[in-house]
C-alpha cells in the first residue's frame, strides 16, 4: 500500500506568515508538498467554522499561521485567534476529532526556515494520526 499522503490546509496571514512562506520559497527551503495555502488578511479572520469545514471537506489537518503575539497588524487579531482556537480544540475533542489535527503557530515574515520546519513537523504528525475519520462519516 502506498504511504498515506495527507492533505493539509494552511491559513496564513498576509503580513507575517504568508511572507514567511514566501521567504521559504525564495530561499529554496525544502518542505513537504502536502500543504495547500489559503492567504487571509489576519489570523483573526480564521473562524473556527472554517477549520471544521476544511475537516468536513476531507482535509487531514489544518494549520493556522499568524504573526507573533504583539506583531499582529490589526493589533489584537491574533489574541482572538488564540482564544478561539482554544475553544475549538475542546469542541473537537468532545466530538471525537483529534484536536492535534489542528495547530496554531506564529511565523513571522523573516522566519522562512521556521515555516518550513512547522510544515514538516505537522505533516509528520498528521501522517502518524492517519486519514481524517470524517472522510468515512461523509462517505
Amino acid at each position: 500500500m502506498a504511504e498515506f499522503e495527507p492533505k493539509i490546509l494552511a491559513f496564513c496571514c498576509n503580513w507575517c506568515s504568508y511572507a514567511g512562506a514566501d521567504l521559504a520559497g525564495v530561499s529554496r527551503l525544502q518542505y513537504p508538498p502536502n500543504i495547500r495555502i489559503i492567504r487571509v488578511m489576519c489570523s483573526g479572520r480564521v473562524e473556527p467554522e472554517f477549520v471544521v469545514k476544511a475537516l468536513s471537506l476531507r482535509a487531514d489537518g489544518v494549520l493556522i499561521l499568524g504573526c507573533h503575539i504583539g506583531d499582529c497588524h490589526y493589533i489584537y487579531g491574533n489574541h482572538r485567534t488564540k482564544k478561539r482556537m482554544a475553544i475549538l480544540e475542546r469542541i473537537l475533542g468532545y466530538l471525537g476529532i483529534d484536536p492535534a489535527r489542528v495547530r496554531l503557530e506564529w511565523v513571522s515574515a523573516s522566519e522562512g526556515a521556521r515555516f518550513a520546519e512547522v510544515v514538516r513537523q505537522f505533516t509528520e504528525e498528521i501522517k502518524k494520526l492517519g486519514p481524517n475519520p470524517l472522510k468515512e462519516v461523509r462517505a
Partner: peptide, 29 residues
C-alpha cells in the same frame, strides 16, 4: 450561519455532520 450554504450543505438530511451543529456549539460556547 446554519442557513448558509458556504458553511453547511443544504438540501439533505441529516445535515452535514458535524458541521451543522458545530456552528451552534462554537457560536454559543
Amino acid at each position: 450561519k446554519m442557513e448558509q450554504k458556504i458553511f453547511t450543505e443544504t438540501g439533505s438530511l441529516p445535515p452535514e455532520i458535524p458541521m451543522f451543529l458545530f456552528i451552534r456549539f462554537y457560536h454559543i460556547s
